[in-house]
Amino acid sequence: MDNEISNVKHDGRSPKEKYVHSVFESIAGKYDMMNDILSFRRHKAWRKFTMNRMNMRQGDTAIDLCCGTCDWTISMAKASGTGEIVGLDFSEGMLEVGRGKVAKEGLQDHIRLVQGNAMSLPFADNQFDYATIGFGLRNVPDYMQVLREMKRVVKPGGMVVCLELSKPTWQPFKFLYYFYFEKLLPLLGKMFAKRYEQYKWLPESLKLFPGREELAEAFRQTGLQEVQAFSLTGGIAALHIGIKENLDV
């Protein structure tokens, strides 16, 4: 298949959508470098753990929401081998970086990139074996709507997967984490990416986002079954997995 970027209209977006879009457009070129710096490269280990839990098979299909610069999209394409992998993001700047990485890996015919809205996916029901979202669910206007859309587009028996920053609960690590996340992280963004306000947004985006157990309950409320929640690196991040009911079983 051809690597495809479809157009999307941004009219009618909420103030949060507009602001988040501007943040990611402005940091796209430094996004990968800053991920390594700010997470001490732990995001790679978190994604490896997630891929092991997903246990993709040859020919499996997937849609990766808020795919950013496509690291997870590429990992799934390599694991699937022959199945269609779609990466969707609302930021053309992030997709442009991802497009270059996809080409470097020689996966242009295996990965399709789409500019679109995670809350209204332009895909049919029951289309993919997996629907994933990495470090993007806390940035959407309505995370329950995104979870409903993810459930809608996966096949019966398919898997909905969310890898996201979370909230440590035990002291003194909790105090140290929040000090780093709220005070030092924006300064590192200013130092390395010449962006302060944009990286100040990251801790702000986590404040109103549910913790690990609350997000697991949100998965259940969406109707997903066999929900699993994994705490990663002392609760800095969390992996959530849910299965769409298979009516044939």
Rank of each mutant, 00 (worst) to 15 (best):
N3S: 13
S6Y: 10
N7R: 09
K9N: 15
G12P: 01
E17M: 04
E17L: 02
K18Q: 13
Y19D: 06
H21T: 08
H21R: 06
E25V: 08
S26R: 06
G29L: 11
K30R: 15
D32I: 01
M34L: 08
D36G: 04
F40K: 10
R47E: 06
K48C: 14
K48S: 14
T50A: 11
T50S: 13
R53V: 14
R53A: 14
R57K: 15
D60R: 11
L65Y: 03
C67G: 10
C70G: 01
A77R: 00
A77C: 10
A79P: 08
G81P: 03
V86I: 14
L88M: 06
D89T: 01
D89F: 01
S91N: 04
S91F: 01
L95M: 04
G100I: 00
V102W: 00
K104Y: 09
E105R: 07
H110F: 07
H110P: 14
R112N: 14
N117T: 06
A118K: 07
M119C: 10
M119W: 09
P122A: 02
Q127V: 07
D129C: 09
Y130N: 04
I133Y: 01
G134T: 15
G134M: 12
F135T: 05
L137T: 08
P141T: 05
D142I: 04
D142L: 04
M144G: 11
Q145E: 11
Q145D: 12
V146L: 08
L147D: 07
R148K: 13
M150W: 03
K155C: 10
P156F: 02
V161F: 00
P168H: 09
Q171V: 08
F175K: 12
Y178V: 05
F179P: 01
F179W: 14
F181K: 04
P186I: 03
L187F: 10
L188N: 05
K190Q: 11
F192T: 02
R195D: 09
E204V: 08
S205W: 08
S205F: 08
R212H: 11
E213C: 07
E214C: 07
L215I: 06
A216N: 05
E217M: 15
E217A: 15
Q221A: 14
L224G: 03
Q228N: 11
T233K: 06
G234I: 12
G235W: 14
I236F: 07
I236S: 06
I236M: 12
I236R: 01
L239S: 05
G242C: 06
I243P: 08
I243W: 08
I243C: 14
N246F: 06
L247K: 11
L247A: 13
